[in-house]
Design a protein around this nucleic acid. Structure first.
Ligand code: MN
Ligand code: MN
Ligand code: ZN
Ligand code: ZN
Lengths: 142, 142
DNA sequence: GTCCATAATGAGAATCAGAATCAACGCGCC
DNA sequence: GGCGCGTTGATTCTGATTCTCATTATGGAC
């Protein structure tokens, strides 16, 4: 049977306190910095398990690194993610679900699944970028 | 300026003769097997360049490996991919494009981009799977 | 055609995320 | 309390991708 260990719980909690998506490596670093003695392999295992059990969502960064995030359980959903700060919004879209299945069926495909993620700059980061645009030089205040 | 080398051309052609998505590693193997002396690093560089220039599409496998495929240039599109044999169908869906931008805008996000891929079992592989189901034992024909 | 600056190449080393090892550990159950 | 076995974690290993850098070869100049 599956056993309860403080390590699994530590990973669950660390995930929960994090707003955006995080890698196993950085989550491990965070845990270590807060005094935990948890091992890296255990973090990888715990995150993989959480993802399988539906307690965590995962996606791959542009560099192919797996990122995880605490997940609202039960419902299928996707994510709108800020490229700059990682802020993530869960989104549902039945229309897209239907579209994916229809496209698959129309082409004779069965057992359809899909990967749908939207990226962008959140309002805060957009404002920051605009401000930086006006004053491009991050130099010293003369 | 960008120079034309037989290596780039070899990669372009090898990509073109391949129906589905392929990795840099396997493309390199294929090229070597056909007598080419092209280097692995060069294949990686050529594929990355082709992707930037829009001549190739790329996606990441479940294991995080980058896969490439010759691309119908010019038009934005997505893919319907057979999990088993790699058969790929290019799909367009203005409705999904619009949805992605709307979802981003509704949440105050700018500079929206998106990742949309549909996976499944193609008709051929579905039939194969069904046949295997009926006769699960791949044993010798007695 | 020849020359040259320099972009491109490729063998091998370096990186780095992630998986595999395996002995020590400790959770759940009697 | 004792035990079986699922879990852990330091470490090693793997494999994809990138980096190095000496060598090669493209494309414009002449
Ligand atoms: Mn969906
Ligand atoms: Mn699109
Ligand atoms: Zn942001
Ligand atoms: Zn197929």
């Amino acid at each position: 049977m599956k056993r309860n260990t403080w390590q699994r719980e530590a990973v669950r909690e660390a995930l929960g306190t994090n707003e955006g998506f995080v890698s196993a490596q950085s989550l491990h670093s965070t845990l270590r910095e807060t005094g935990s003695s948890i091992g890296l392999a255990t973090v990888y295992r715990a995150l993989a398990d959480l993802a399988v059990e539906g307690e965590a969502d995962s996606l791959q960064s542009d560099q192919g690194e797996s990122l995880y995030r605490a997940c609202t359980p039960g419902q299928h959903h996707h994510h709108l993610i800020c490229r700059n700060c990682g802020l993530t919004v869960e989104i549902e879209a039945d229309a897209v679900e239907a579209w994916a299945h229809r496209v698959a069926a129309d082409n004779g495909f069965t057992q359809a699944s899909h990967v749908v993620d939207v990226f962008g700059l959140c309002a805060t980061c957009t404002a920051q970028a605009a401000a930086a645009q006006v004053a491009p030089a991050p130099a010293s205040p003369l």
